[in-house]
Amino acid sequence: MRDHGFSPTPHVLAGFLSAQALDLRGGVQLQALAVNNGLFCADSFVGTTFLSLYGKYGCVSEARQAFDHMPRKTLVTWNSIISVCTSWFG
């Protein structure tokens, strides 16, 4: 996509993050791409999708760090971090 001059949008990035074939390493690389392109802080949808990815792999501390760095937190974001924490500590 980037090789052809297109920049990722929040919706495209969230679609990649939701793919079942995505592993944790790929998710971390996509987070770096999101941070470098300003998508992580600009859209709570992208950040919330990262919380789900980290929760899926049991990376609670990484999910918490991502949550703490999100400037905009929606009700869905709060529900996601609560779900991540309760699923591993509940």
Rank of each mutant, 00 (worst) to 15 (best):
D3Q: 13
H4C: 11
H4M: 12
F6Q: 14
S7Q: 14
H11Y: 13
H11M: 13
L13N: 03
A14Q: 05
A14Y: 03
F16S: 10
F16M: 14
L17W: 04
S18Q: 04
S18W: 04
L22P: 04
L22E: 05
D23Q: 07
R25G: 03
R25Y: 05
R25T: 09
R25D: 07
G27M: 09
L30M: 08
Q31K: 15
A32G: 12
N36W: 06
N36C: 07
L39K: 08
L39R: 08
C41L: 12
D43G: 03
S44N: 10
F45C: 07
V46N: 04
G47H: 02
T49Y: 03
F50I: 13
F50N: 11
S52Y: 12
Y54C: 01
G55E: 02
V60G: 11
V60F: 08
V60S: 12
V60R: 07
S61K: 14
S61Q: 15
S61N: 14
R64W: 14
Q65D: 14
Q65G: 07
Q65P: 01
Q65R: 15
A66R: 00
F67A: 01
D68Q: 01
P71H: 00
R72V: 13
T74E: 08
T74H: 04
T74F: 00
L75D: 10
V76T: 06
V76R: 08
T77K: 02
W78G: 15
W78C: 15
N79T: 09
N79R: 06
I82D: 01
S83T: 02
V84N: 03
C85N: 06
T86Y: 01
T86Q: 03
T86S: 06
S87F: 04
W88D: 10
W88Q: 07
F89W: 11
F89A: 12
F89H: 12
G90S: 03
